[in-house]
Design a binder for these strands. Sequence first.
DNA 1: GTAGCAACCGGACCGACGGTCCGCTTATCC
DNA 2: GGATAAGCGGACCGTCGGTCCGGTTGCTAC
Lengths: 168, 168
Amino acid sequence: MERADAARNRAAILAAATRLISERGIETVSVEDVATAAGVGKGTVFRRFGDKAGLVRAVVDETAASWIQVASLECRTAGEFAGTLFDHVLASLPLVIAVERTTVRSCEGNFRITVERLAELVGSTFRAHTLLAVLRGEHIEFLLAQGMTADEIRAGVISLADTLAAEV
Amino acid sequence: MERADAARNRAAILAAATRLISERGIETVSVEDVATAAGVGKGTVFRRFGDKAGLVRAVVDETAASWIQVASLECRTAGEFAGTLFDHVLASLPLVIAVERTTVRSCEGNFRITVERLAELVGSTFRAHTLLAVLRGEHIEFLLAQGMTADEIRAGVISLADTLAAEV
DNA sequence: GTAGCAACCGGACCGACGGTCCGCTTATCC
DNA sequence: GGATAAGCGGACCGTCGGTCCGGTTGCTAC
């Protein structure tokens, strides 16, 4: 059982981290910044989340844990899947980029489900990873920086997914 | 005019950096490690290359500057281009990953030429970036870690390039 | 209510790293 | 061989992720 003050601090830390990362990007947010903004000591953050990567993961798990799985299960075509994923990534861009930069990419949990479902839809694991590479936060941020609009990127992603799926 | 000792040190630093990064990956190589391995002081490295990213860029420029441009100019199909690029990336994986991780992705120099040429071959800038996203060192490393063989990945990349080009 | 306990807190502390600075060295030119 | 500027190197700095431990506080049993 988690003590009441601990639960309060956990919530405050997650809220502060979410806000700071969204505002400034992970690169310029230190763990101490988060602790200060949450009104707790640095040690408390590390006790709760292990390390910086754990904190970021917890933030993303909270705000975005479910939609990947939901998208995996509900979407019936690759294009639909890609569009849904794109919308979610775009909505939480700094958070997605933060988790990409702080954790080693792995094939566990939700991600595994996503890949398998996507591989089904586009016909091969390689193509599934291709689509996910294009849906990475950093890639989308880069395309935006190049002057493409979100709508153009969205259309491109969906068209790519459909093309890949059509080839099966 | 560069003094003789400066030139000697520059070469020693580049050689040491290339070796260390290739062996251990950029994450576990500090600038001081490079300086020590090259038999010079840390200050010398920073004087020569500005910062860590500059050092990495110099290393890659030396070993891999030309092939991107060569590939851009010589390859006549998207598949050929993709295969050539893949071979070079695979041959210098740790170096490519190092530059990806230390410099902000931008659209200047060789990279710009590559994108434009590739966009010609596959019919759109978006698709060109898609191909380049799949050819990133980190992505290839990830696929290898998932158990795919280099041949499988190579075939996938070429097939993807051809598919994208066919849609024009 | 209160006493005791374990969980919890926070900030001082540590080691590593990127980057700067400046007094000394040395290649180069005349 | 002497003057000069380019070059050198390592001590030093600020920051950051992560650890540690003495003091505090919420919980529970009586």
